[in-house]
Design a protein around this nucleic acid. Structure first.
Lengths: 239, 239
DNA sequence: GCAAAAGTGTTGGGCCTACACCCATGA
DNA sequence: TCATGGGTGTAGGCCCAACACTTTTGC
């Protein structure tokens, strides 16, 4: 009995938000132009959720994280082995990829500014990539990423999201841009503000953000208690 | 390399609707009073979705089925091995359950009347059980069932369901009772009818159901084309 | 004729959408 | 002073929830 569960892995779609755009954390493989999602295997002694937390912690150095399992990918040929072997021949001896692997997909929301990206042994870089500049990825990772994004959008449409994605203090336009970049469309600022304020999940502070060109926007903070209530009620609804 | 993927299984929560109540298909183990969900292992040569279809087909003899993967259960100790070994000692030699298993959960919606329940080699009966009369199940199957039901409710709240659960022709009260038994609460019949008719997913036939005591209800049929459109739009919203 | 279930309309309130102008700031 | 982005209110329509009586049928 090996130390890890055979033929089972997990992959993480790690979302961050910066510069008004949604970003994903990708790994760049050594001596190549190939990218993939962070992932790993599940130890015999840890739950799959714990394994996801571990992988996330290894790549971002974060430990309090919002993580959600969204789908398990179990096609017989999830990707073309020959293509992978060719692309990674300089790194991998041989039949690492001989057996079929089923992978559990998780997505995570993290505070961009608190992340220290960290490559693993096969990769030379771990970096944020704009959601609409994601290149072709190794394995079936584009499919996993897309499904993860779809799941995030669905969740965002019915539940508050942002506590994990925004810094402690943020402006209403920040939050709106976050919603816009996840949903991939524009929202009217008046309607957006009304809707968010009505839920009571944020509190306006007596401060404004200084040093920005143009009118200084108010700063807000999440009311975590209220936020969790709304989560449970399943309130909030964006279409 | 064995014929099946080690340490990975799947379990199916199979929902049917009859006598105004939502039912689940359970297996009763030989010479005992123990029940479990139908499940199985995944062959090396089949996708996990295909494995779920196979399991479902083996238990119900149905082949065109509505199936949805809803969660993967991956705790280290999903259930107490000693308890299981004791409960099933008359059936199982020994260390079948020695290795930890991760299980992918699927739920299915089937037409009660078209199902021929079929036990497997460990079980003596395969039978429908009312959703609120489900006994304590083996393994962590109560947890799986509950999560499956929760997922079904969520889906039902935002998308039409019924094409797979109701017979070809059905009455509006039938459909309403189906919704009520899935959501676990009463709905106003006028509002229900208005909402369903507005979507256009059903068509009223020029027939009534005869032979029932009291006023004869109209029969309806799904407009499958429109049904699929509404599915894609994500219309329909029950809270 | 009686008991049981089916069928049916209206009203009020809340929520969502659409829409445009003024204000504050840094350059 | 100007350019840029932030901040704000109202009106119309739609959808939802609440609510009760009449009709039909089998017995």
């Amino acid at each position: 009995m090996s130390d890890i569960i055979p033929q089972l892995s997990l992959d993480c779609v790690i979302f961050g938000f910066h510069d008004s755009t949604l970003k994903v954390l990708l790994l760049k493989w050594k001596n190549s132009e190939e990218y993939s999602l962070p992932g790993g295997f599940i130890k015999q002694s840890e739950s799959i959720d714990a394994a996801a937390v571990r992988v996330l912690n290894e790549r971002t150095a974060l430990d309090k994280i919002f993580l959600r399992q969204f789908h398990t990918f179990g096609k017989v040929r999830r990707y073309d082995n020959d293509v992978i072997r060719q692309k990674l021949s300089h790194l991998i001896e041989e039949p690492i990829f001989h057996e079929r692997v089923v992978s559990v997909g998780y997505y995570a929301l993290v505070d961009y500014e608190k992340v220290f990206p960290n490559p693993d042994i096969f990769t030379e870089k771990c970096e944020w990539v704009d959601i609409d500049e994601v290149p072709e990825l190794l394995f079936d990772h584009n499919e996993i990423l897309n499904k993860g994004l779809k799941s995030l959008r669905l969740e965002l449409s019915f539940q508050p999201v942002g506590l994990n994605l925004l810094p402690d203090k943020f402006t209403m336009p920040d939050m709106q841009r976050m919603y816009e970049s996840i949903l991939g469309k524009k929202i009217d600022p008046r309607n957006f503000q009304k809707k968010i304020l009505k839920t009571g999940i944020v509190i306006r502070l007596d401060e404004v953000k200084k040093g920005v060109a143009h009118k200084s926007p108010y700063l807000y903070q999440f009311d975590e208690k209220r936020y969790k209530e709304v989560l449970e009620e399943g309130g909030l609804f964006f279409s």
